[in-house]
Design a binder for these strands. Structure first.
Lengths: 233, 233
DNA sequence: AAGTGGTCTAGACCACTGA
DNA sequence: CAGTGGTCTAGACCACTTG
């Protein structure tokens, strides 16, 4: 017990076999009973090891038949996207105005509704590399609390009245020529393409909580994404 | 037993409390012992329910202290990226030539090494919307099996001699002006920016297995990504 | 010392798949 | 029918945290 738990040994051994190609997608694993004998372990311990492989997506169980090696998913990519919170104070503008058509559609607002607009510039080594605008539906009569805004990043600010888990984000990434506003703020050339990330924050009641666009210049660098089974346990 | 398993009821109840904001990040959950009494269940059943919440990232266990509600991760995005396998046959070019500097660096090859180059155009409703080039290190004397290439998608072709799980992909996404080659092939304007996805396939021995660039025009549409706890169980 | 989660066991009954 | 995984129980010992 002092060292590695038994179930970890089990799942590591099987995982190594899969990575080495000794067993391949579609192949059947030994049954739980057989593994119990092979490892001298109880059924629960064996199951714990197999469950971990299931969670990793390496293996799946077919009740009544057995465990099988899964097909690898090499087209699912993960982006860890930091919100650059270190640059909290450089707001370009905070104000309330009627929503543009684009924003109205993204937030599914009625005509004439107002939105809180928050612009922010993100710097890297003193140079502006990114500009983002965020839009939040404005509830009439609700005061804008500046300190709240100052410390907020997008999900938190938009979901201030929502439970912290009760929403998700849909993002779309595209290449665009920078609009005039962005050319002016970031000082990029009008012919330098920018990455644009459009984000909609959606509550579990399907309510549109917030919308934002983020422009990334070449100076920001590329977005990095990962796929595969490189770093998991 | 006919309906929902007990552990599912447990994790759903707690999950609902988290989503409703009744318990919040940093809050402690009831202990296993207490939950056993509350649900009239055995410890293992309680633990199974809590384990599921842990896997979802909603909760973490601190041995000796208890279970706590985790902080939500709203800056991790997932892209499901299909390889457009339906358009297998429209290869623009397959050949072997010395690697360019860019490719040599990406694949970490020695000077003078040759690479297999595969170009492909992807159509949508009859119109070319994407062009991709893939580079594979060329082993001298190894014949290029055409049918293999014809049916292959990137990870599989690059890792043909590797176990199907034993590699991962690093991708970088940027906005660029299309190079002349792409302007010509896709018929886009020289001033229309394109999304470019650079991919490197890396084996578990850190070997560079393949490199590719994929150009997406406006006609392809934006890349879609998701974050949050919207769709999991 | 009391309480917490982490690991492990031995046994039970169930529903499902396949010959 | 025998074999498989899915669920559940009751008990044990451990290492860790807190008072």
């Amino acid at each position: 017990m002092t060292g590695e738990p038994l179930y970890a040994l089990i799942h590591k051994t099987i995982k190594a076999d899969i990575f080495a190609g000794n067993i391949n997608p579609g192949d059947m694993l030994p049954s739980e009973t057989l593994l119990m004998e092979r490892y001298g372990a109880s059924r629960d311990t064996i199951r714990k090891g197999l469950k971990h492989l299931e969670n990793l997506g390496l293996v799946y169980a077919w009740p009544g038949k057995g465990y099988y090696v899964a097909k690898p998913e090499h087209d699912i990519f993960t982006i860890h996207f930091s919100e650059d919170v270190d640059e909290k104070k450089r707001y370009h503008a905070i104000n309330v105005r009627p929503a543009s058509d684009e924003v109205r559609e993204a937030l599914q607002l009625q005509q004439g509704k107002q939105v809180i607009t928050i612009g922010r510039v993100i710097h890297r080594q003193g140079k502006p590399v990114s500009y983002e605008v965020k839009y939040l539906p404005y509830d009439k009569g609700a005061p804008i609390i500046e300190t709240e805004i100052e410390y907020a990043v997008f999900p938190e600010i938009a979901a201030a009245k929502t439970a912290p888990f009760a929403f998700y984000t849909e993002m779309e990434i595209g290449a665009e020529m920078p609009p005039e506003e962005v050319v002016h703020i970031l000082g990029v050339g009008a012919n330098d393409p920018v990455l644009v990330m459009h984000r909609v924050i959606i509550g579990h009641d399907s309510q549109r909580i917030g919308y934002g666009k983020k422009y990334l210049t070449q100076g920001y660098g590329r977005l990095k994404a990962l796929s595969g089974y490189g770093k998991d346990v």
